[in-house]
Design a protein around this nucleic acid. Structure first.
Lengths: 346, 346
DNA sequence: ATTAGCACTCGTTGCAGTAAAGTGCTAATA
DNA sequence: TATTAGCACTTTACTGCAACGAGTGCTAAT
């Protein structure tokens, strides 16, 4: 579709603009080492590229900047896979040498390190524990009819919730109930703790236990707590403020407001089934607020099943190649670390 | 120290400036309903107030704005206790009608509501659980020598941590260990789980259990986890961006960077022993970054013991009276709610 | 003690003029 | 036919300047 020369020009324009944030002029390009062309020739090519929609011109006497379509073409055709530099790799490897069971800390650290490395804003979506299996359920009475229900998964995740039991339930019934629940549910993956299983169990429990409503309540609360357990970590929010395109408070504000809402952040980074790194440029994100932003994200997996994701938000004028490589690498290492954790290797 | 008329003038200047964010001139004041003085008279008074250090003048031909000292005088002598308006009271009461056992949600909601009500940035420091007592300790083996240690307090807080036990420890020893720990520690307040108790227990446990290092490790980890459990919630960060004094990205950035670090936020709001609302204006905060900010904070208590705090960060040009009243009220209601929760009332 | 009046200061706004950067087009060149 | 040199044109950014407005401080009158 584009001639090799046009590709080269587009490529250099993107890379120059990403670095300088200034529109790139024909003279700048003609001085570039990879050309021995005059500025006039390049001007003609640029005019063509603009007509094809790959370049924009802020105003008549300015240089060119890549359009959304231009960035898209660059990402799709003009970047290579390649290796990360050693320093970055080391920083990331360090990150995952930590104890993987302290998930909160790992996720938080990841967001901190990634935003340092990239100078953009980082989002880490903590792992869904849907895939994990029930190891044990506990119910600890607190006095009154209150109790704490605790669920531990085989990966060692602990989820808990306070419940209000029937007023008159005797201690031995509570014990019996917990016993039955464990007997019946140990080994069950959490994602099956949904409505289907609920009904199946209801009848069975009802025939054995007197306080079966309490048992169901406990299950229900635990299921809710478990499904709400995915946490969102945002790091390097203030990096946005260093970007020249966001020097204006009115431009940053809507963005920061979005980043303040974990639900929204989670939605933007919602799991994509496909493997690999996903790049959404400008309006491809589907939100007007993000029209001058690019979101790059990657999921990480446990034993092949996606459980969470990491993402970077920055201006469309983003250092694509580097960020893609970093996220690719991070998600791979993270997947491996999480999988090892689960399969019980030390 | 100040004549009644000077007080009145200072008062009106503060209130006018807080609302308009524009330096207040003598003419504006002379038109104010509470005066029947000419602008010239007021000019003389203002010149005096400036000389005394209560007012500043941005430049020679501008009106006056309150100095840090001026705000301090205003807060100390010119505000009254008074009542909150009904709407605000309702919004706050709503907040604490929630289930108090879901602390994370309450704290988060508090920060959201307070920042909506005040249009400033809100910080909520989650409760220390030092005062709570151990209800039960659990140790759930995960396979390998890994296990999850869980601690439940009498208030129903659950804290957990993964631990690595000795490789060769038999299941019945684990059970015995947990039994002993519970027998020995149930009812102990968490703050005693520190080093002193550690030593006391060490000898006792050592004489009974074979794997006493494991028991101590478990205790140690739980103590660490419990003391790290105080969480920080920051809400309405972007409200800062609406303040005219922070229209400039370079001015907001350092502030937002600070707010991004929970440790720092916690430090700024660190517990003050005295009751009531604390107001720190500008440099009183001790940090150059906060020189044009005011931090107002209040602690909340459980049964009289301070366990956490709520705070508001805004420009020194702050709506003092209102914010003080809101925080005063919030901390009281919160204290009551938390205390009731603990004493087991439903 | 208060006020009217006035000269003075300082920041803001609008405007013309200039310099710089970059383009598009045409005509010359390899 | 593809490339390049040259030039007129456009637009922005910057600079200096005058006019304006808000507000003060001071003095003299009430």
């Amino acid at each position: 579709m584009l001639t090799p020369r046009q590709q080269l020009i587009l490529s250099v324009i993107v890379e120059d603009y990403v670095q300088s944030a200034e529109p790139v002029g024909s003279r700048t390009l003609s001085k570039h080492e990879r050309f021995h062309l005059s500025s006039a020739t390049i001007r003609n090519e640029m005019a063509d590229l603009e007509e094809l929609g790959f370049l924009d011109q802020p105003h008549a006497s300015a240089g060119r900047i890549p359009s959304q379509k231009g960035y898209r073409y660059y990402v799709d055709h003009l970047t290579s896979e390649g290796r990360l530099d050693g320093e970055t790799v080391l920083a990331l490897q360090d990150l995952f040498r930590q104890r993987m069971d302290e998930w909160e800390r790992v996720a938080h650290q990841t967001s901190v390190v990634l935003s340092q490395l990239t100078q953009y804003t980082t989002i880490v979506l903590g792992p869904h524990i849907h895939q994990e299996r029930i190891k044990q359920i506990q119910l600890i009475p607190l006095g009154g009819a209150k109790a704490v229900a605790i669920l531990v998964t085989d990966a060692g995740q602990v989820t808990s919730r306070q419940v209000q039991l029937s007023d008159d339930i005797p201690a031995e019934h509570v014990a019996g109930m917990v016993h039955l629940l464990n007997q019946r549910l140990t080994g069950t993956p959490l994602f099956r703790l949904g409505s289907r299983m609920y009904k199946e169990l209801a009848s069975e429990i009802g025939s054995v236990l007197e306080h079966y409503e309490d048992a169901l309540l406990v299950l229900d609360e635990l299921a809710k707590a478990a499904s709400a357990s995915q946490r969102v970590f945002v790091g390097g929010t203030t990096n946005i403020l260093s970007q020249p395109e966001f020097r204006d408070v009115d431009k940053v504000k809507p963005l920061l407001e979005m980043l303040e809402q974990p639900d929204w952040v989670a939605a933007v980074l919602s799991l994509q089934p496909k493997a690999g790194v996903k790049v959404r440029i400008g309006l491809e994100n589907g939100l007007p607020t993000l029209q001058s932003c690019t979101v790059i994200s990657a999921t990480y997996r446990v034993a092949g099943v996606p459980v969470g994701s990491v993402g970077i938000i920055g201006p469309t004028r983003m250092h694509y190649e580097r960020v893609i490589r970093i996220l690719d690498y991070t998600s791979q290492v993270l997947s491996r670390a999480m999988t090892e954790r689960l399969s019980g290797k030390k």
